[in-house]
Amino acid sequence: MIWPIDLAILTLVVVAAIGALRVKDLLGASILFGSYSFMMCLLWSIMGAVDVAFTEASVGAGVSTVLFVAAVFRTSRRTRD
């Protein structure tokens, strides 16, 4: 495991998580959550958990982002926090 890459991706994960929770638009939050999931997938492939990384890439970054966008489309983009 190469620690500078690991540390950089861990920082990006935290930034994406805080960004997804702080942005004042739910569509933006769902897209940022998709990027968070993809960063998580990179982290797992660094750790050698290839099966878990594959699952997260298809499930977390793929389907759950689509589900979030669909739900936001059916409700509203407005949020106060």
């Binding site: 290839v50 099966d51 699952t55 298809s58 499930v59």
Partner: peptide, 16 residues
């Protein structure tokens, strides 16, 4: 790497 869970999600994603 792969198996039923990942393959099933990919097949479902194609219809989505």
């Amino acid at each position: 790497p792969g198996g039923g869970f990942q393959g099933g999600v990919i097949l479902g994603a194609s219809v989505i």
